[in-house]
């Protein structure tokens, strides 16, 4: 089975068909997807702003990582739970969309960087340029995910 055939099969799943046949399901799920994105932006920025020297001065970046984690995970869960049905409804279009593949690539990088790098070392004693690099990379990669995600709709 080729990758295209997999995508074609995914599009024919009951969830994909249900959403395609409905005039309001896609917009409704899309709206919740956007709300999750807004929350994600807040959760990411609470830590990154602190690393950049703004945000809440009374807390260390490490404390902020811990305290925003439930919101971060909630946002990601919302985005994945809504993103999968959106994808299923137009999997073949996604297959041919550069924006889709860019988004998925950036998403893997963003998740790996956030949980594997940023959150692990944000609490350590870092010098200013390290903090700035960490925050800038985090903001850049998540904005890429969001922008590429929006662009799927234009293709």
């Amino acid at each position: 089975m080729t990758l295209f055939e997999v995508f074609d099969w995914l599009e024919q799943t009951p969830i994909g068909t249900l959403i395609r046949d409905s005039s309001w399901l896609f917009p409704a799920i899309e709206s919740v997807h956007l709300l999750g994105l807004a929350l994600l932006g807040g959760a990411v920025l609470m830590v990154d702003l602190r690393l950049l020297g703004f945000g809440l001065p009374g807390k260390t970046a490490g404390e902020l990582v811990d305290q925003t984690r439930p919101w971060m995970l909630g946002a990601i869960a919302t985005l994945i739970a809504t993103g999968i049905p959106l994808f299923l409804s137009e999997a073949v279009k996604c297959y041919f969309s550069d924006a889709f593949w860019l988004k998925m690539g950036a998403l893997v990088v963003a998740l790996g960087f956030t949980f594997g790098v940023r959150d692990r070392i944000a609490g350590r004693a870092l010098v200013i340029w390290q903090q700035r690099a960490l925050a800038s990379a985090s903001i850049a990669v998540w904005l890429t995910v969001a922008a590429a995600g929006r662009w799927i709709g234009f293709s």
Partner: peptide, 21 residues
Amino acid sequence: YPLVETAHVLSIMLFVGTISF
């Protein structure tokens, strides 16, 4: 037009994201 719309969405992350907290 798509660029402006994308900028609109990205700014929601900053705006609504921060006000949420």
